[in-house]
Every structure is written in C-alpha cells, then in structure tokens.
Design a protein around this nucleic acid. Sequence first.
DNA 1: GTCATTTTGTACAGATCAGTAAAGAATAGG
DNA 2: CCTATTCTTTACTGATCTGTACAAAATGAC
Lengths: 192, 192
Amino acid sequence: MGRPREFSDAVAVDAAMELFWEKGYEATTTQDLCSRTGLGRGSLYNAFGSKHRLYEAAIRRYADTRGEAQLAMLAEPGSVRDRLRDLMLGVIDADMADPGRRGCLALNAATESSGRTEAVAGLVRRQFTDLEQAILRLVEVGQSTGELASDRPPLQVARAFQSAYYGLRVLAKVTGDRRALLDVVEGAVAAL
Amino acid sequence: MGRPREFSDAVAVDAAMELFWEKGYEATTTQDLCSRTGLGRGSLYNAFGSKHRLYEAAIRRYADTRGEAQLAMLAEPGSVRDRLRDLMLGVIDADMADPGRRGCLALNAATESSGRTEAVAGLVRRQFTDLEQAILRLVEVGQSTGELASDRPPLQVARAFQSAYYGLRVLAKVTGDRRALLDVVEGAVAAL
DNA sequence: GTCATTTTGTACAGATCAGTAAAGAATAGG
DNA sequence: CCTATTCTTTACTGATCTGTACAAAATGAC
C-alpha cells in the first residue's frame, strides 16, 4: 500500500548507469543523477539510499545487460577463434563509435580508486571472473576439437587472452589508431 | 630576483603525484594537495596555476620517474623472454605489495573520464607508445636472434603483449589471486 | 470517508569545493 | 637604505556538494 512510485526502478538505474558510465563515480553529482533520472532528491534517496548504493546498482545493471550481452556473443555458433576475435572487434567498433569514450563501466570502476569499496570491487571481480570462465570454456572447446593447440593449460591461455582484452579497452580510451587496436586483436587471437 | 621559493618544484610535484596516484584526479581536493605538499594555497596556485595543470605536471613526473624506470628495466641484459617476464612479474610484486592498490597512474588517468582532457590524453598516449616501442625493439631483437619465432609481425606481437600488460594491471586492481596474475604472465610470455 | 503508509517536491543544512584578493615578508639590484 | 619583484599567508568568495526534514499528495484497507 501507500503512494505508488511514479517511476520504474529499472529505468532509473539504467539512466544512472549511463551517467556513471560517462563521468565516473566521483564526478557524477547527485544533482546530475536527479536530472538524468527525472527523480527528485527525495525520491532518489528514498529509493536508493545513497549515491554509492545507486552506483552499486548501476554496476549490477551493467553486468546484467552489457556484460551478459558479451557473454551471449561468446556462446554463438562459429569457430573459437572467430568468437574471440568478434568479441574484440565488437569492442573496437563500440568504443571507437562512442564519442564519450566511456569504455567499460566495470573496468572504469576497477580503476577509479574513490568509490572502489569492497562492495564495488566484489561486483567488478564477479564480472571479471564471469568473462574469464566464458573464455575458458571456449578455449577448452577449441583444444578438444583440435582447433587450438593443446600444449598449454586452458586457464592460462584464457587468462592471457582476457588480459589482452582489458588492455585493448584501456588503449581504446586514448588512441584513435584503429590499426594499433586491430594488431592487438590479431596478436591475441594468434596467441591462442 | 624577488622572494625565493621555500620549496622545490620537483618535490612538490612528487607529493602531488603520489596523491593523484592514490585518489585519482576528481577525488583529490586542492586542500589535500596543500596538506601533502606543505604549500599554502597561494603558493600552490602561484606555482602551478590550477589543479588540472598540477595534475598534468604529476603525470609528466610519473612518466619521467616510474615510466622511465620500467623502460630501463627492459634495456637490461638477458633474454627477451626474461626481460618481458620480469616486467610483468615486477608489476605483480609492486601492485600487490601496495595496500592502496594504486596501480599505474597513466592507466588510471586514461580511464578516469573527468580530467581526461586532450592534454592528459596526450601525455598518457606518449607513455603508452613509449612502452610499445620499447617492447617492439625487444621483439625485433628476439626475432633476429632466433629466440622468438619470426612468423608474425613484430609490431603485432609487441602490441598484443603490451595489451596483456595493461590488462594485468587492471586485474591486479581487484584481484588478490596471485596465481591468476601469474597465469597472465606465463600466457603472455608463451605467446611471444 | 478515515487512517496508515509510502512517495513526492521543496527547502534547507552544514560542509566543502576551486580559485582569488590583498597584505606582509623576503630577496636582488641600485 | 630603497625599490621592484616575487613568494607566503590568511581570509574570503560564491558555488556546489551529499544528505535530510517535512509537509503535501496519492494510494489500499477498512
């Protein structure tokens, strides 16, 4: 009972996510969040408690939407090499098409020291290990079908590839040199 | 002529660098900077103009000290694989020994959207390409001596390794799992 | 309708923000 | 010693920060 909410939580968190994604935690003000979500201060604090809690919700939402979309991409049919290459190529297209150069919210949250509480670190860690596991499964498939060489531990191969993936996203933040990024992709795929 | 400065610019920038390194640009206040450097507000603004200009000076100083130290490490004697492995192992030791989990200031500056003006992006880009070139030279040496396979373009190999290096630093920000990080090292070195 | 409950809007709190103004202090040159 | 110049200190600005208090509004239960 009581007065019903005039907004959808998911939509509000989505708007907050976009904002944190653009500006980071510290540079985003609660006023920004009110403007972007359309909520008044009272509603925003009533629903989410604090700026930091909303930040955590935004990271969770990022994982549930963008993160899951990436994992789904890895599950599509096709050779292992093609799947992993597409993952990286997709990132290059997305990151370079984005004028705000937002990159990956989870990665941004990992590197921004303020707001990197244990709660945030935990959420980021989970996204990282989810991706690691998805890559690992692909590598295992590739090794079992003979598409990939089987002379190295799959987990090691997966982790090295994942690292190159995050490095790629870091490089894409400051460089506009598409060929440099494509070198990373081909180098990482060749290393499989 | 005029009244002499009571502080050394280099020492002040060094202190500011440590602070920006710990907290990032946005979360560092000018009051923090005054406390840490020991300067009054007047002196700080007289000497550096603005918080952002001091940030740029800090990044430059980071490049001149920490960045150069890394490049020097790559120039030491030893096999190419050992040099590149040591680069990464050194990072693991340094990052995990640091309770503040500061990581790499240049990488932090690259991902923090606020304060990422073109000036900052340029400074970061320079550090990135300096490392790329240093790795490239090593790869070229390795390929010419036969230590590394010569079936792939050296620049592609170097860029993929560099990416794994930055990815490693990102992972080190949130994980305490040393074996996961060591997998990245061995995977990246094996991919050479 | 009345009541309990929740949401909403507004106004406000106290702290803190980056940056500046201005007066006093320390120097070099004359 | 005197002046021009630079640095230091302090006080202050106006804006902005996160979070809260509180009354009005909207609902369901009865």
